[in-house]
Simulated assay, not measured.
Amino acid sequence: MMLKLYYSPGACALASHIALEEAGAEFELEKIDLKQGQQKTPEYLAINPAGVTPALRTDEGVLTQNLVIMGYIAQTHPEAKLADVDSSFEFGRMQAFNGFLASSLHPLIGRALFSRPPLEGEAKDAAIEAGMMKYALVEDSLLQGPWAMGDAYTVADGYLYVFTRWARQAGLLDPARYPKLNDHLDRVQARPAVQRALAAEGIDAV
């Protein structure tokens, strides 16, 4: 089975890229330049009509959404142990964590940091505050430690890393307030698979 991941460097598709590297999967990468509007071309809209990354082409068709793609990778590469695929409850618990990141944290921090045109003044401050409340929820309640789900690394860790990476780049991940998130970021970033994904996308560790 040959897989192809459509991604944009440093964007949220990095989570699916990391999952593929962790799984030891055979895959190709195709860069979609969001700044140039490549995601809105007819060619890409034929792959993902939503016009966003990631998209994963499989032998059976195309999957979209990080949560789905990462779950698929974990299930099709069970030997990599990227999720507890034998327990419906534990798999669901991981997907609940990923769903929170996708539906609650990502939209808020994405709006704060990447709105076009950029937010300014009180609007930006309010957006950042709303986003950081979600990081605080992960720090104080959701992050099990040392990994997102507890003792075992899962695809949820690569997903959380995307967002803590953004926050650290923006100077928002205060080590005094978010010690667990900072420790988690460093722990994930040190993994060889993550370093390979960063190098392939031409982006730096933070």
Rank of each mutant, 00 (worst) to 15 (best):
D59Q: 09
E43V: 04
Q38C: 01
H77Y: 15
V155G: 04
G121C: 11
F114L: 01
K134S: 01
E21A: 13
K124N: 07
N98D: 15
K124P: 13
L45E: 10
G24F: 06
A112V: 00
T64F: 12
G92E: 00
M70I: 06
P118W: 01
Y135K: 00
A148F: 14
L29M: 11
G131C: 02
L105I: 00
L63Y: 00
A23D: 14
Y153L: 14
F114S: 00
D86C: 06
E79A: 15
F91E: 02
G37L: 02
A23S: 12
E30L: 06
A74C: 10
L143C: 03
Y161M: 05
P118Y: 01
L63H: 00
P146D: 07
F97N: 04
A55V: 05
D125L: 12
A19W: 14
D86K: 12
A136D: 08
S87N: 09
L142H: 06
G71S: 10
L45R: 12
P117G: 00
P107R: 00
E129F: 11
L34V: 03
A123V: 05
E122P: 12
L160E: 05
S87V: 02
A96N: 04
M132N: 07
A102S: 15
V138S: 07
A46G: 06
F91L: 11
L20M: 12
L101S: 03
I47V: 12
S16W: 09
T53C: 12
G51M: 04
R111P: 06
M94Q: 14
P107W: 08
T41Q: 03
Q36Y: 07
G150L: 05
H77E: 13
K81A: 15
Y44L: 07
E129V: 07
K40Y: 11
M133D: 14
T64K: 06
L63Q: 01
G110P: 06
H17T: 07
S16G: 15
A152I: 01
E30G: 05
G145Y: 09
E22K: 10
P118G: 01
W147P: 09
S16D: 12
T64H: 08
G61N: 05
A102P: 14
V62N: 08
T64M: 09
R116P: 07
D125H: 13
K31S: 08
Q95R: 04
D86Q: 14
L142G: 10
